[in-house]
């Protein structure tokens, strides 16, 4: 599968990037794509999922790299690689759940290239979508690309491609905010508001905008937390289900707790009721079971990946329960 021709834009500053992006954004499959690590984009371009006229390479933009501690918390540049996050002593100390999630992404070689911004912007995935042009033609295409029906939900007009990034689940638990830069300046929004819940138009990012920074608030520093990932192989695989949990405990009681899921819905999602249920309680088997059930109810996996949806939902329940009990000890 060849990589089609495209024009490569290589800005050195953020302003230059925005000025290049805005007038040449394009639309649809031809829309300008931003490349950082390229681990998601390049295979998709070979499969003709994207056929951009322009590719904007942001790797030269120094201001998008690195981890900084500020008054409000910790800022991570969108270009920071996952292996850099894995090794960061600041993050290890204050936001261990993010480090744990980053460590599970793909394989060490991929993590050396892949960025946190890329993991947040990761395209949603589906067995009926992440295939070559020839393959997709043989099933009449799907609603996410070139077709008008979904193969995984009967009579579906909604796209159910699953969001398959690992780190966003951890970031949701950390109440992370993201900064987007566009021609009108920058805007900040909670990561939770970035995702739409639709499999096709899965994120709220204008074609002329760039994700620049991830901000981890002080308030969620030093929470205990963990990330559990369902995969068939211990390396390489995307998550088939993922659960991130952060807890703040005081005298054996939970002061606050957050649970987020990934790879089982078109967006990474917080298990909303879980926080209410956990608050003020002492963590025991029964509570863990109850919250596990809540998480499983939030998960809506379909046949977008390997393993059956029923099994993946069940694993959300098991992983949630296990992770909670592990944190309790």
């Amino acid at each position: 599968m060849s990589l089609a021709d495209f024009k490569l834009l290589r800005p050195r500053t953020l302003d230059e990037a925005i000025s290049l992006l805005a007038p040449q954004a394009g639309e649809g499959a031809r829309a300008t794509r931003v490349i950082a690590g390229g681990t998601d984009l390049i295979p998709s371009m070979r499969q003709k999922l994207f056929e951009p006229e322009y590719v904007l390479d942001i790797r030269q933009i120094a201001e998008l790299k690195g981890i900084r501690e500020t008054e409000q918390g910790t800022e991570i540049g969108a270009l920071t690689t996952l292996s850099c996050i894995e090794r960061s002593s600041v993050l290890k100390q204050h936001y261990p759940v993010l480090v744990e999630a980053a460590k599970t992404v793909a394989s060490p070689v991929i993590r050396n290239m892949a960025t946190l911004g890329g993991n947040i912007c990761l395209d949603t995935r589906c067995l009926w979508y992440n295939q070559s042009l020839t393959w997709r033609k043989s099933c009449g295409f799907c609603i996410k690309k070139d077709g008008d029906l979904c193969h995984v939900a009967a009579g579906g007009k909604k796209c159910w491609a699953a969001f398959s990034g690992d780190t966003p689940a951890a970031l949701l638990c950390l109440e992370a905010e993201i900064e987007l830069a566009g021609p009108q300046g920058t805007r900040r929004l909670p990561l939770n508001d970035f995702y739409t819940g639709e499999g096709d138009s899965y994120r709220r990012l204008q074609l002329n905008e760039l994700l620049t920074r991830i901000i981890l608030p002080k308030a969620t520093a030093d929470l205990s937390g963990t990330y559990r990932k369902l995969r068939i192989r211990g390396s390489i695989d995307y998550p088939l289900a993922g659960v991130a949990i952060t807890l703040k405990c005081l005298n054996g009681h939970i002061e606050s707790g957050r649970i987020a899921l990934t790879a089982v819905n078109p967006a990474p999602v917080l298990v909303k009721k879980a926080s209410e249920v956990l608050q003020g309680k002492r963590l025991d088997e029964e509570l863990a079971e109850l919250v596990g059930d809540l998480a499983a109810k939030t998960a809506k996996p379909l046949t977008t990946s390997a393993l059956t949806p029923e099994y993946r939902r069940e694993m959300i329940r098991v992983f949630t329960k296990r992770a909670l009990l592990a944190l309790a000890n």
Partner: peptide, 10 residues
């Protein structure tokens, strides 16, 4: 997989 076009899809 809920739907299959048996080659007759769009």
């Amino acid at each position: 997989g809920a739907l299959w076009f048996k080659g007759k899809g769009p």
